[in-house]
Design a protein around this nucleic acid. Sequence first.
DNA 1: TATGAATGAGAGTTCATTCAT
DNA 2: CATGAATGAACTCTCATTCAT
Lengths: 228, 228, 228, 228
Amino acid sequence: MGKILPNKQNNNSNSLSVAARRRQREREERYQTILKAAETLFSRDGYHQTSINQIAELAEVSVGTVYFYFKNKEDLLIQLLDEISYLLRKMVGAEFRKTEASLDGFMRAGKVFFSDFCRLHPEKVTIMYRESVGQSPLVSEHIKKIQDKIGSDIIDALERVAENTGQGFPGEKTAEIISTSILGIYDYIASKYLFSGDYAVDIDTVGDDAVNFLIGGIQHLCNLESNK
Amino acid sequence: MGKILPNKQNNNSNSLSVAARRRQREREERYQTILKAAETLFSRDGYHQTSINQIAELAEVSVGTVYFYFKNKEDLLIQLLDEISYLLRKMVGAEFRKTEASLDGFMRAGKVFFSDFCRLHPEKVTIMYRESVGQSPLVSEHIKKIQDKIGSDIIDALERVAENTGQGFPGEKTAEIISTSILGIYDYIASKYLFSGDYAVDIDTVGDDAVNFLIGGIQHLCNLESNK
Amino acid sequence: MGKILPNKQNNNSNSLSVAARRRQREREERYQTILKAAETLFSRDGYHQTSINQIAELAEVSVGTVYFYFKNKEDLLIQLLDEISYLLRKMVGAEFRKTEASLDGFMRAGKVFFSDFCRLHPEKVTIMYRESVGQSPLVSEHIKKIQDKIGSDIIDALERVAENTGQGFPGEKTAEIISTSILGIYDYIASKYLFSGDYAVDIDTVGDDAVNFLIGGIQHLCNLESNK
Amino acid sequence: MGKILPNKQNNNSNSLSVAARRRQREREERYQTILKAAETLFSRDGYHQTSINQIAELAEVSVGTVYFYFKNKEDLLIQLLDEISYLLRKMVGAEFRKTEASLDGFMRAGKVFFSDFCRLHPEKVTIMYRESVGQSPLVSEHIKKIQDKIGSDIIDALERVAENTGQGFPGEKTAEIISTSILGIYDYIASKYLFSGDYAVDIDTVGDDAVNFLIGGIQHLCNLESNK
DNA sequence: TATGAATGAGAGTTCATTCAT
DNA sequence: CATGAATGAACTCTCATTCAT
């Protein structure tokens, strides 16, 4: 993730001694252990209902150690959201890039989100979508940046598809609106069908319907025909 | 909203004395004053960043008075969400019922949401969509019920439209998925274009695009043709 | 109980109008209703766990009315303890006075306490013995007076018995010590066998043993022989 | 008392480092300091009249520290009662066991209670007997267990004495009733002559009379002759 | 680096008491 | 006399954060 650890030269050269390398490896493991503990608890109990003591306990380190690796509780959430959004963009983006920027790409990317990302990382989805709101200004600001980044991915994809098919967007903001709508659909569908135990449904089927819904929306707004 | 006030007979008969009626009216005013103060602060700073003391101060009452009218802080949020969702359903539902259960109805309902509800009650939208997540189990449970109610409204509307046009839904869960997607779109579009000061756009235009997007989604999933 | 009601002439003469007499009667009923409500709640939940609001609710009056009849919460407890101790002294003392100041009188008085007072008024016993400790200085002071009064009753009885039988007490404080011991026995036996649901025993049998125990104690200290 | 401190392995092995041992010792000292402060204030002002802030102030720690060592205010009282009852049982029981289970043992144990325990630890007696009633259900339950334990000690002693002297108890519950009566005597005598400043008497003399009183009671119920 | 005891501001909540009507 | 809404001081408890070891 390229996270630069505190007070540490990010020197990957092999000039480091064996001991130094071991220490660096251990540091990174600790960092991840703590982050994983936070992920587990934030997703299970929520950010505000989780205390640093609980995180330290689960990670089997002292509270002091948590504060050595992370500036404060907010930082812990921010780093977590960064990791999650990085993984999300990597997985979904990679799938889209396999196609030649077509609506089919949106379909495949959507399936990857519902069938792979949500299924493999339900806790990450919970945090991404549940702890992304109602936070302090500082965190809110950061979250907006993340969402803008993911939004940009979608807008870029939309524009390339439009270019490829020779179509355009009726309004200046249309691509952005579509992007925002898609994010809303992803969030609500994932939240409803993944975490509320009441719904015992096949996430694949649900994902298919949701993807078809948004494909329809795009076509309707842009007069595109699926090149599927 | 027909909220029954604490320790009060809900006696609407005119047998009440003048003094008693005045007191009851004052009680309801106080109740609304406090609720309004909570709305303002929750929407500006967020639920967790708002203290009961601040609410009392803004409402110009003592903390004790807040607790006279509301069981606790959670109750304050729940009553608020109830009032907001009641208003939302009333406004949007009334507009839909003006049509004869057609896709056009969805369009008009969507416009009412974006152009009327969001514009007139931006704070209510913030609370409805920002404080609806990451809360304690008790609140989460209540919120789920509210969302289910609104979701049911949409599903009912969808089914009546399908019936009217002689179409159907491909899958058992399709109507529910569409409903959930629409809620997601509403949430994200409203949140993005209403409260992030960066975007100075015409909410009407944005709303139009969003509504067209979801209309396209419905048609695509159900093979409906707009009877607009 | 001779409790003088607030701001009221304690005029029992028949010069009062019918209406005035009715009001006075109603006042006394209210007073008793509130006291009874307090008794019920204090005995069930304890003094500190009971609020004035609860008492008012159970008595079906407003909190203001409670404060009209009683100076404050402490006063409520004090009046209650006065009533209880008055009844206790009346019942037990009356029984003792039926005998000619003999050890037999102690026996009969003890039986009255266990078989009559405890059985008929378990809540009064709870309050008398459970709320008599751990209170504020003002209440503590009053309780000490009550206990001294009951203690004096016993000491008087002991001295009359000693006089009747020509015996004496070895030490200056002996009568007082016996009296205190008897009170301790009454308290603990009543508390253990009356209110802890675990013990399903015959209070009469238990009372008999307890009474015999204390009779033995008296004899041993004073070299008396039972004139039973 | 072998109280296990929070989050600590109860590792008594000498494998602990010097620093770790020092920290453990300091933790135990702090724990005792806070408990001692609570004892002082509870005994002087009563449990309900004492606030955590006062305890923290007297112990010269912060409120947070109090809550680091004790779960809550109730826990503080419970730990205190445990320590007191442990000491009481140890002192009185040790004295009784010096004799060969005779009435003389009861005498000596009684003297130890009045002359040693009460004189050395008047505050402990206050708490033991004044805060043992009128508490919340949770505390009440715990207190009942403690009293049952002490009661059992006495019953055991009584049964061994009866066995030694070839006597028996008239009823099934007699030993228990005697035990309860003795506890009542201890409580009332200690409370009256130790803490009510009005009585400046020799606790030894008072104790002697009280002990003789209960010895007489036992003999009378069991037809025992003192083997003194 | 790692620890974990200590901090203390601040939170939510209760409740005896008052007083205008 | 009776009401009950209003008060606000005081309480218990939490927890992010620090720092000496």
